[in-house]
Nucleic acid binder design. Structure first.
Lengths: 123, 123
DNA sequence: TCCTATAGTTACTAATAGGAACCACTTAGG
DNA sequence: CCTAAGTGGTTCCTATTAGTAACTATAGGA
């Protein structure tokens, strides 16, 4: 994405898409919207995410103020992640997109199959 | 993204995000929403996009049935790209996201600056 | 003849997403 | 008391991919 920065639009949409464009952010937001959750609990529930990607993605979300990180003073110390108000509002907006995706996925899938058939799966 | 495919969610949201997650698709949809446009006209107006990325992105959008491609039988032949009905409906949904982005960008920018200051721009 | 425009394709590269393995600490079990 | 397993990460490396530069091919104008 840094190559994009060379052009350096300061377009707000780009900012948001840079964040939610990646696979894990959206999954984490959806998961955290259900309930606050700890690191390894997230790791288990998200399924397929590596420790590193979880750490990186959470840090980015925290940096954007979408997720809060709270260290609980227990032994062993635990860290709880939760959506902030801003995170919840984004979750709502993502819902809109999800609705669109749900209702259009069949058509898109069909369109792709059609296209691939017409232009040969080659290319 | 193919590593993601290893996990292979058949989540509709992922499909959509894989498409609009990249920089150019959204810009092209926004541009084509204004008016149908030809290849090099798009290239001039989008500013920063290379020929290849324009070709690749348009082909993906066409494959998903979001954009139509019409070869005009002129000399030299011209190709006109336009949003389909599905494309226009996605444009509407993107509008929702753009609104969210617009109203939250200042806060997000501030949050990032804050975070970077607190955790040191190092890391 | 050379330059522009049309609409791409091909060949290559730099950056990044992502996995594997490691770290440091604490509690529990045998 | 030594291993195992849980906590929450970090470091290192590479396969993939996004993106650029350069080429193709045709037509029209000066």
């Amino acid at each position: 994405m840094s190559r994009r920065r060379a052009v350096d639009y300061d377009c707000p949409v780009r900012d948001v898409l840079d964040r939610i464009g990646d696979a894990w952010s959206v999954l984490l937001i959806i998961e955290l919207a259900k309930a606050p959750c700890r690191f390894n609990a997230l790791r288990r529930v998200v399924d397929g995410i590596s420790q590193r990607m979880l750490a990186v993605t959470l840090r980015n979300l925290e940096r954007d103020g979408l997720v809060s990180r709270t260290v609980l003073d227990l032994s062993p110390p635990q860290v709880e992640y939760a959506l902030t108000a801003r995170g919840r509002s984004l979750h709502g907006t993502i819902g809109q997109l999800a609705d669109w995706a749900d209702s259009n996925q069949p058509a898109i899938r069909a369109s792709r199959a059609n296209y691939d058939a017409a232009h040969g799966a080659k290319r």
